[in-house]
């Protein structure tokens, strides 16, 4: 059991470093899109929600899971779409100037 926890911790620390390296030096113009794009990725909790909502019988867990599915999907779909909408605006100017 603790072994799983430790592996998770290793993955977490390494991924954090990757995140810091990859995202550093983002120009201010992209701060908002980066934030809302990252926010959409945090909707990955939808995977967890699906796993606990998928059980056959109805109980507290599946109901909570279902609510979580709805909320996380709002986060994912809304987040990616709104980011794209913003980036589309940035794109437009590149061609007009």
């Amino acid at each position: 059991m603790t072994e799983g926890l430790l592996t998770g911790l290793v993955v977490f620390v390494l991924a954090s470093f990757v995140g810091f390296e990859v995202i550093n030096k983002v120009p201010p113009t992209l701060h908002t899109p980066l934030m809302s794009g990252a926010n959409a990725i945090s909707g990955i909790a939808v995977v967890g929600a699906l796993l606990i909502a998928g059980a056959q019988e109805w109980n507290v867990t599946t109901i909570l899971g279902l609510i979580a599915v709805v909320l996380a999907t709002v986060n994912v779909v809304g987040g990616f779409l709104v980011t794209d909408r913003m980036l589309q605006m940035f794109k437009k100017k590149e061609t007009t100037t």
């Binding site: 620390v13 991924a15 995202i23 934030m35 926010n39 990725i41």
Partner: peptide, 17 residues
């Protein structure tokens, strides 16, 4: 692990901002 990675990435990006 995939969830941990995705979450850590977002955590890092938010912290940088």
């Amino acid at each position: 692990n995939m969830l941990i990675v995705a979450g850590a990435l977002v955590g890092a990006s938010g912290l940088i901002l």
